[in-house]
Structure formats: C-alpha cells, structure tokens
Computed example of a mutant assay.
Amino acid sequence: MDVLSDAIGVMRMGRPHSTEIRKHAPWGVRAEPFSGAGFHVVLTGTCWLIPPAGDAIALGVGDVVCLPHGCGHALADSPSTSLTGAPSASLPELVPSADHGAGPTAVLLCGAYTLDRTRPHPLFEELPEVIHLPARLGHRTPLRAAVGLLGDEIAHPGHGTDAVVSALLDIMLLYILRAWFDEQTDDGPATGWAATLRDPAVATALRHIHQEPAGQWTVEALGAKAGLSRAAFSRRFTSLVGRPPLGYLTWWRMTLAARLLRDGDASVQTIAQRTGYTSEFAFAKAFKREYGLAPGQYRRQARG
C-alpha cells in the first residue's frame, strides 16, 4: 500500500456516482456542501466554476476541477447567470436552473464521493477547497485516458457498466490528487505533504508503515529502512509529517482499526493483531484512549 491510496481508502464510504450535464446557454447549476469530494470535467464548450468565496474560475475543454472538501459551488455559462431551483439538503446532487437557452452547448462530466471526515488523513486536510487542473497538451496522460473511458462508459452503457464506472471514478480521484501533488514542485520547492511524499527517506518509512502496520517498528528500525541514523531520521520525519515516527504509527494503526471495526466483521482480537498489538487488552486500552470508546462500543455506535 502507499500513503495516498490508504488516505483515500480509510475515508471512503459507499459507492461514488457520476452524471453528465448537457446545457445550452444561458444555464447554471449549483451543488450544496456535502460530506465528500467531487469533480467536474469540461467535455465540450466553456463554463465558469463559482466557489463560495473568491473569484470565479473560467473552465475550457479538458479542464478538470476538484472540490476535495465538498464545498458548495456553482457552475454556469457566465458568472452573471442567475441560479434557480431548490438546493439539495443532503446528497451532493447538482441542482439545475431552467434549461431554455439556445446559446452555445456545454457538456460536463461530474463525479462525487462520500467520505468519512471524522478522522481525515493529514494529507487530505491540506488540500485546497478547489483544485483546478487546466488542460495542457501532453500533460497528465493517465488522467486524460481515465476521463475518456469514463465519459464513453456513461454515454454508452453496457454489461457491467456499474462496476466499470465505480472503478473509473476511484481511478479519477487518485489521478487528480496525484496530479495536484506532482504540480506543487513545478513552481518551486515542494512544501507540506507534497514535500513529504517526495522525500526519499521519509516516503520509504511511510511506505513500510502502511505496508506493515502490524510490524514491531522502532525509530531505529524505520530509520534503517530510510537509510538514516535514529536521530537524523526522527528529526526529518517529525519536521515533514508533523508527528514523531511512532506517533504517526500509532495514529495510523488506530485509524485503520476504526475502519476495520466499522466496515468489517473481524473480531477485536484479530484487529488487534492486524494493527500490531500482541494482546486484545493493550489494543482496547490504546483504542479507548484515542476514541473515548471501547472497540466493541465503537463498532456498535458506528453501525447505528
């Protein structure tokens, strides 16, 4: 496993969904805030994304825009177009204005994911409200390929379309976030988690933590994997990640344990072993210290 995949995996809930919007100017749609992430891709024409704060963003063919924190926003042919229609109170649905226009056509591909934000990975927390990835020839080829496949599947559904669309939506989110992190180094030195994921030593240690959360890791052992002395590794890891190595290890183990309790049927003892605890008692004590509930209580509460 890798950090980006795991960060998304522990937050994902339910299945993602997507739709195609085809509108004639003047037009506008709005999406209310929701507990998740969403994206829009312009397939034909042009439009504007209107965020809850800040300037409207002009979008052209091939542009991808992602709302990783599910902020409310609008899409329209012009920033001055009025939006109508009752807002959606819960689901991340796009609420359209009346489509009686006879102007230029815009076609957009939209997707949405439901995320559990009770314990977000710090990688996710530092993402901006809006990620805009303008179309550039020869750039982000995998993302462009995923867009083409998803658009074709939605336009021409066939046997297995539900599974194909769900898988492609997962791929889309990963490609969008990967592109954003990669581009943080284009205009200068990387900072935050973009720097963390690019640091060979810290990235190596993180990869081992995520691949083997049950490993009996020490700072010395992780430092050896990273090719650094204990002291040098601890300073570097803490500076980039924001937590000491063993602090992050414990945080990740508890985050993983919570997902296993919420989504699976493994026993508490099995989950304790999978997250590096030799006894169920030690695991339960650590879990209650982190969440304020015993593992069994947490499971019952999480499942309603």
Rank of each mutant, 00 (worst) to 15 (best):
G242M: 14
V268N: 05
A266L: 14
D265A: 12
R230V: 04
G223I: 03
F283P: 01
A282W: 01
K285D: 09
R259F: 09
T278G: 12
K285S: 09
F233R: 00
E220P: 03
Q269W: 00
A284I: 07
L260K: 05
G264D: 12
R274S: 03
Y248G: 05
A282F: 12
L249T: 06
W251F: 15
G276W: 03
R243C: 01
L261D: 04
I271T: 00
S239D: 13
V268Q: 05
A266M: 11
W252F: 15
M254P: 03
T255M: 13
R259K: 14
L249H: 06
Q269V: 06
A224S: 09
F281Y: 09
L256A: 12
A284E: 09
Y277G: 05
S239Q: 15
A231C: 05
R262K: 15
R259E: 10
T255Q: 02
T250H: 14
L256E: 06
A231H: 01
G264F: 02
R274A: 13
Y248N: 10
A221C: 03
G247L: 11
D263Y: 04
L261K: 11
G276A: 00
A232E: 04
F283V: 11
M254H: 01
R274K: 06
F281N: 06
G276V: 00
L260M: 15
W251K: 07
S229C: 00
F237K: 07
A282L: 13
F281R: 01
